[in-house]
């Protein structure tokens, strides 16, 4: 299984909403195969920053982004802010965003995970293997293996959060963007997911938002603190 080591370089990134500047002139590097944690108060633009990295920000109305976000991969550099509309689907398959609130599709547990895999053109046998593997990774397999074909929205909040993480892992992204990945989980499961993230950084670049200081200290290689302008 081959994962690409992607480095992200953020240069003078400014995000504004109308006349309100959410953040300005952000410049820092996100190193390949590492975990970068974004911390800071609510409303400072952490989630929006993650959405800039996979360009879902373009789906939000009224937001304006300036600067550069360079993706370095296999000797090539691409400024993702300059990508054409038709290039976005392939970016989003490589740089996957996992939302804070489980954004399930109105499909079964199986199809929620299979959806992204089908978009990647993966065959049925491979899809079954990947679904099982990713559900095991997030400790959900034993809880859902008997009811894979029931609607996913019957799952509890914690199960839904692990399901969307499994959906992302099944797609084997090069960059994983996690917005409060353990917000709905109990302490025991949170620790298990943290261990999973630590193991995953051997394969991919992870950028995460967390409000739990202990979690950030435990898993992050780099901590980037966003502050309100003084």
């Amino acid at each position: 299984m081959e994962f690409d080591a992607i480095k992200i370089e953020v240069e003078n990134l400014t995000l504004s909403y109308g006349k309100r500047v959410v953040f300005e002139n952000l410049s820092f590097d996100i190193f390949p195969r590492s975990i970068t944690a974004l911390v800071g108060p609510s409303g400072i633009g952490k989630s929006s920053f993650l959405k800039i990295l996979n360009q879902m920000i373009r789906e939000e109305e009224g937001l304006h982004v300036e600067g550069k976000v360079l993706l370095h991969n296999k000797g090539l550099s691409v400024d993702i802010l300059k990508l054409k509309e038709c290039e976005l689907p392939s970016l989003r398959k490589k740089v996957l965003y996992v939302a804070q609130h489980p954004d399930l599709l109105p499909l079964s547990i199986y199809d929620n995970v299979a959806f992204g895999l089908r978009l990647q053109g993966i065959g049925k046998n491979d899809i079954n293997n990947r679904i099982e593997m990713s559900l095991r990774d997030v400790f959900l397999w034993d809880e859902v293996k008997e009811r894979l074909h029931v609607k996913a929205d019957i799952l509890s909040g914690g199960q839904q959060q692990r399901l969307i993480l499994a959906r992302a892992l099944a797609m084997r992204p090069d960059v994983l963007l996690l917005d409060e990945p353990t917000a709905s989980l109990n302490e025991e499961l949170s620790l298990k997911i943290e261990d999973l993230l630590i193991s995953l950084k051997q394969k991919m670049t992870i950028v995460m938002i967390s409000h739990f200081k202990e979690q950030v200290k435990r898993v992050a290689d780099v901590i980037f603190e966003m502050r309100l302008p003084s």
Partner: peptide
């Protein structure tokens, strides 16, 4: 059709056609 479902599928790399 809820916008959140459309955004989720775009977020997973779906094209407009998909």
């Amino acid at each position: 059709v809820p916008k959140k479902h459309i955004k989720t599928s775009l977020c997973l790399g779906a094209t407009k056609k998909e």
